[in-house]
Design a protein around this nucleic acid. Structure first.
Lengths: 149, 149
DNA sequence: ATAAAGCCTAGTTAATAGCTTGGAATTCTA
DNA sequence: TAGAATTCCAAGCTATTAACTAGGCTTTAT
């Protein structure tokens, strides 16, 4: 029941973009540097987010990435589902997918997995990138300088 | 963010024991048969549950396993934590463990992981094996015959 | 005595996470 | 117009882990 580095790196990358929303595009080089992770790997993660329409890219020198929408229109759930796949603890409770297990209608544990799934989704869908930006500013004192991501 | 087979098999095994609570010990052979899984593998899972004090074993012929406490005293969380380890989406929010990350105090994403952790634990800690037994009976009509596990 | 169970330790195998490598395409700037 | 900075793309690699299997010992009801 652990998230992969995709979800973790990707969400902080999105927070980075959110903190720079309205300004110049942010190059992955800088994001990777601030997070202390591999740039080519981050490249792969953000490729998924771009294909999902959550970020836009600007190619060429001085290029980079920007959020496709304002930070208050993007939830943590939007980001995490792209990076981690469906946020369900077991395959038989993935939303909008047919259940292959013939026991499903009589399955007691399935009810528990559904509750876990719903509670996770309730959390991530109720938090936007703007909420994270606000939290960041209140933690780090509106300096405009990026201490920690 | 998926559970392993340990958590899934193990919880249904515990439900099996709960359905037989107060009667003869249940042999793993039968549990494995009802679930359609490997008996030696299930053996390993239940060994953990025994060491954690959640089940008791009766050795020898006609032996088997019984719950160490009444089903209403054992929560899904008790079982899952033994089988899956701490139910935290990332290592830095495992309860009762020192946080090694020096950014922790300024980390915005950490707050999200904590909320996810808490919501998962709230679900699993509020459901007992007895709740599952009751659900099972209402689903399968108190036949005393085990249709599905 | 025998068979049916639990107990224990050590393999094995396939999949996956978490990258790395290498290069092509695009675009700003000098 | 050259070169540097960037995104884009596809493939390969490696260590770890999940999910078992194998084999043998110990205990106990019948």
């Amino acid at each position: 029941m652990k998230l992969s580095t995709k979800g973790r790196y990707g969400l902080t990358a999105m927070l980075d973009l959110a903190l720079n929303y309205g300004e110049e595009p942010v190059a992955l080089k800088n994001v990777a540097e601030r997070q202390g992770i591999s740039e080519p790997y981050l490249e792969q993660l953000i490729a998924g987010l771009r294909k999902a329409g959550l970020v836009k890219s600007v190619r060429g020198a001085q290029g980079g990435y920007i959020l496709a929408y304002p930070p208050d229109k993007i939830t943590v759930g939007d980001v995490m589902r792209v990076l981690e796949g469906p946020l369900a603890p077991v395959d038989c409770v993935i939303e909008n997918e047919p259940v292959s297990c013939e026991k499903a209608d009589h399955c007691v544990t399935r009810i528990i997995w559904e509750k876990i799934r719903d509670s996770i989704n309730q959390v991530v869908d109720s938090i936007t990138l703007q909420d994270m930006v606000d939290e960041y500013n209140s933690m780090n004192g509106q300096k405009g300088y990026m201490y920690y991501i």
